[in-house]
Amino acid sequence: MTSLALIFVGAVLVNNFVLVRFLGICPFLGVSKQLDTALGMGMATTFVMVLSGAATWLVENYILIPYGLPFLQTLSYILIIASLVQVVEMFLQKTSPGLYRALGIFLPLITTNCAVLGLALMATQQSYSLVETIVFALGTGGGFTLALAAMAGIREQMEFADIPKALQGAGISLITAGLMSLAFMGFSGLISM
């Protein structure tokens, strides 16, 4: 139980995927202009992360390892994620139009979000169990949502700031992210894994 809590807190704060491990930077810069879209993106990503974490765990432990096919890891993981995103999209469209309207536009973007593939590869590398992988995915998704929401909050405030012309857009976003990353470094002494 403690180890699960450690994995969760570690993924949310200490090794925040976006600000410390640099995974999922594209949506972090691209979809963080408004708070509500940022939250939607974060939630959709968390959802896909949990599903694909579990799916890749099953494939790794029941297909790739028993049959000695480690070289198909990258290939099969990305295919799983891509098809999973497709299935989730169709499923949501049919069963829950409300949720689909909220998350639908973000789903196609998630396939090429390196945080999702990164999560699957990292969970395999750490040889997490199925439960640990799911907790890790939840923590990672939570950390991703947190970073995205915090960034969106700051950017909404920055709309009215007088920023040098050259730094407008990506430049100032990156420097803001640097300051946030500096703040997150304070968490690094929180727990030792």
Binding site: V20, F22, I175, A177, G178, L179, S181, L182, F184, M185
Partner: peptide, 8 residues
């Protein structure tokens, strides 16, 4: 060399 430096 640390993460913030990469962003800066």
């Amino acid at each position: 060399l640390l993460p913030p430096g990469a962003f800066f």
